[in-house]
Design a protein around this nucleic acid. Structure first.
Lengths: 202, 202, 202, 202
DNA sequence: AATGAATGAGACTTCATTCAT
DNA sequence: CATGAATGAAGTCTCATTCAT
């Protein structure tokens, strides 16, 4: 938390450092209190600068929030692009592969919890993020359906929404990495096999 | 504008009618704009009464909101109690039975869309509703696991959360009853059988 | 200044009284400091009410200003309509008649000096008022030219602008009624006869 | 962007060039938006320098404005000194001579429209300019009255104010030089002969 | 000669809430 | 039962101005 000689912020100009500081504290406050209950005055107090300084770096409170959202979403989209499962995968590896995808997402969500809170869990932005996410995942699933990996009797978007719903409900408890890994396997099992003991695919 | 003899509100006292009217318009405004963007002045304007009147019937804006939440949640809990699947059900009926549960929930959510919006989709209350719902459903699932219907290698709460996630993502599109029925079957399939073509239960 | 039993304000409702009080003090402050230098906080302090009260009666500072402008202008237009000189007037009365018009205008401008200040002398509204006034007067002059009273080799609007200019420059010193009357005659002479000793009309 | 050898600013020191550039853009912005709506940040942005630089050359926004006012007024005073009509002028040339004075003023006002806007038409400075102008012109008129050119039954200052009023109202439309010339003659006629057809000087 | 960065002071406006009637 | 009127407390944002370099 304290800037050391090799702090990644130490080579930035003063302004860039202030910008970064404000962003950090804005994220913290938004995550803690939500968009509506966060006051610009709180953010600048936490960052140790005056209110006008905030407006040197952000057009408005809303824009500061949008910036954070945008960053979170573009990182998230980049991640989902890496999760496509290629067609030739052996059946025996399938579950592990799906679990890995879950795990990568959980890890991503745990990586910057404040940004995650803002971008994925909190209104007003979370709904859009999830809608986007469903589309990105649906893109992957559609390909995976083509490749014969997943059932085709249900629309890709619907399957994707199911995944998003799981992520939404599960991802609030990602204490340590091992727990996230376990959770990933549970999710993979649920998603791939369903929950019914008597299920038969035919 | 004039209450007729058989108006459902006509047998209420004047005060009770005003109360009901305020509640109705409060729900509409909260659903339309969200808690934070709804102003008491909007509600009373829509209801055609003065601001102090609002405070005759509700302690505060927050309490009015809480009232609506509470009502929604208790109705929802009552519903989930009816969805428990008894142990002896034949395998052949299982999917239909699960689909029926989904359908009942979708119908419930479609019944009073404003209240649903407030209680299930909108912050700040929706998270608590969903957490509660997950618990109520987990209670059912735990029993159903005991009865040998569902897999036991995943905790009931986790399965329940998966269901809640599905509901959350799916339930935004419940135009007409038939579509909700179709959606219920898709959900039942996804939930019971999973999405993987190569899945084998063992 | 003190409300007596028969004060014109005493029969108004409380709200109307507050409204009037705010208007009065708004006019005073605008007149004293100009639009830009007048703060809503000054106005309400002078009126002895809280800031939100201001916004019960005016949409914004700008609207309060506009209200005053509008009132001033419509009163002024009404006045100018009464100043048209009918065709058959005997030559011997002409100067007196023109002087009377000047006098009525000077009296009007002196009647409510604060409103005059705002509407006639101060930016940002005064230019529009004067442009309007020139048009109203030009309407009269055009008729008077038709009636053979005034020279026709110069456009009515130009003559009107000349009158407006005189008013603008003269009207700042309207101490007492007699002085205004004297000034009116000077203006009438200047306007009707010009300033050149050697002038001959032909 | 680069100063060429014969650029009128090229022989100035760098600082003087910056000063001139700032003045030019300050005048443009003040003329465009008025004193109150012009922001220092606008001026420096237009001039392509930083905000502190502004304060190297002007004590404050107000002082920058005052500088421009002062320059405009002293140029204007110099002009009025040249407009005095000498006593012996033949009657037949009188109107042309007065028209010439109007024309010179209109040309002066058209010469640097931005400065004119600021110094002659816009608040808060225009009233003082006009009051000064009335005095300068009154000085001339008093002499001209002494010389038997103008009527003496009206105070010189009042006649001067009439002239200023005419200038104020007329001078907003000085498109091209010929139009200004025509306008000058109309003004001369109005001022010298008045507008009444039946006027007789006695 | 010039600037990147920062700020003090304050403006307007909003809104949930409450008196007094 | 209902309301016209009023407000405390805040919140966002702006702008002229200055420090340190």
């Amino acid at each position: 938390m304290k800037a050391t000689m090799h702090d990644p912020e130490s080579c930035l100009t003063k302004g860039a450092k202030t910008h970064a500081k404000l962003r950090r504290h804005a994220a913290a406050e938004f995550a803690r209190l939500g968009y509506h209950n966060t006051k610009v005055s709180d953010i600048v107090k936490a960052a140790g600068v005056s209110q006008p300084t905030f407006y040197c770096y952000f057009e408005s409170k809303e824009m500061a929030y949008e910036d954070l959202m945008t960053e979170f979403r573009s990182r998230f989209e980049a991640l989902t692009r890496t999760l496509l499962i290629e067609g030739g995968i052996p059946t025996s590896q399938m579950l592990d592969r799906v679990a890995l995808s879950f795990q990568k997402i959980f890890d991503f969500l745990a990586e910057d919890p404040e940004l995650t809170q803002i971008g994925f869990f909190q209104p007003p932005g979370c709904s859009i993020t999830k809608a986007n996410l469903a589309n990105w995942i649906a893109r992957n699933i559609a390909n995976e359906q083509q490749a014969g990996l997943f059932r085709r009797d249900i629309a890709a978007l619907q399957l994707a929404q199911c995944v998003v719903g799981m992520l939404d409900q599960m991802a609030r408890l990602p204490a340590d990495a091992q727990k996230r890994k376990d959770l990933s396997f549970d999710c993979a099992h649920m998603l791939c096999e369903g929950i019914w003991l008597g299920a038969k695919k035919g």
